[in-house]
Simulated scan of single mutants.
Amino acid sequence: MKKLYILCLLMAANHFYAQTEIDGIMMDKNNFCTGAIYEYSSWDNYWEGNFKRENLNFGTISTQKISVNGNYGITDKLNAIFSVPYVTTKASSGTMLGQNGIQDLSLTLKYLFYEKEIKKNLLSFYILGGFSIPTTNYVADYLPLSIGSQSKTGSVRLMSDYQFGSLFATASCSYIKRSNIKIDRNTYYSDRMHYTNEVDMPDAVSFNARAGYRTKRLIAEAIFDTWTTQKGGFDITTNNMPFPSNTMNMSKIGFNGKYNLKSVSGLSIIAGANHVVAGRNVGQSNAFYGGLFYIINFTSTKTKTTTNEN
């Protein structure tokens, strides 16, 4: 459900806009963009396999998340990005208690390896490598209210971006490798009985496409995003709780916006929303988010310090 795909979250910045790993923007050398984002999402309908249903035992599942994010320009063509989210879950009905805590630390290196101007338009290609690790010992086997899956992940993403005037289009695809996890019981059933506490976590493939309007002051974009579990997952069984290694497929649409303030140089406001339009073993969630980001130019600081010393 909502937490079913956030379990597999590779980068918290994946649904946000502030020079993230899946947009066609690079942070300049020695510039550091940092900020926080608040997100609220909820769902009361979900897919049990391909069957869409509701469950009055827990009513509406809501998730609140506050993420601290940052992006540092190592060079003009190489960026380092991090994100740490604090997640809180809640069920409106029933006896299941919500969970809260710090989820996973995610790190990504983003490299611009090809750029060419074509009739005053700009074509760019990127390669990205990332990983994430759990930061706390939260409970993974408590879906749909757990805050994460406890799986360590690694990913490789290829991305292209084409800017033509003030318009742009970006497309990317990634493969996510996930480590096995251990749960607090010695047996569990998937499509067969397992007499172990180790759970095989299936890998996943993610595709993202976005297009819209982009200038130095304003960015507005529409987004289409998919998440597809690879071989090894299985469906939620009828009237049963979901499990960390379930097949979790999802398609969603949304929009992002970013505005750089004129009155405060380096300060930007971001906002957006997304909606799950189709899925398998996930909730049909609606999410809304907003945040503030600020760019610190360490080059200017170094230059001023050197000038003062001279």
Rank of each mutant, 00 (worst) to 15 (best):
N197Q: 07
K116S: 10
K3H: 13
M248H: 02
T95H: 10
Y5D: 12
K116C: 06
K120I: 00
H15M: 12
L107W: 07
I22C: 12
I295L: 11
T299E: 15
F131L: 13
A222R: 00
V282T: 10
L128E: 13
F224W: 11
T307Y: 13
L128C: 14
S62G: 06
P85R: 02
I269P: 01
T301D: 10
N197A: 05
Q19G: 14
N45T: 14
D184I: 01
S83N: 13
S106I: 01
P242V: 03
F82M: 09
G266E: 08
H15Q: 15
A91P: 00
Y213S: 04
S83C: 07
M27Y: 00
I253L: 11
C8D: 15
T153N: 11
A91V: 01
V87C: 06
H275K: 15
S149G: 10
Y162F: 13
K77H: 11
D44Y: 10
R185D: 00
S268G: 05
W47S: 15
N50C: 06
F298I: 04
E221G: 05
L292P: 01
K262L: 07
S179H: 08
G283A: 06
T299H: 14
I253M: 10
D161E: 09
N186Q: 08
I22L: 11
P144S: 04
K152M: 11
S300K: 15
T307W: 10
N281A: 02
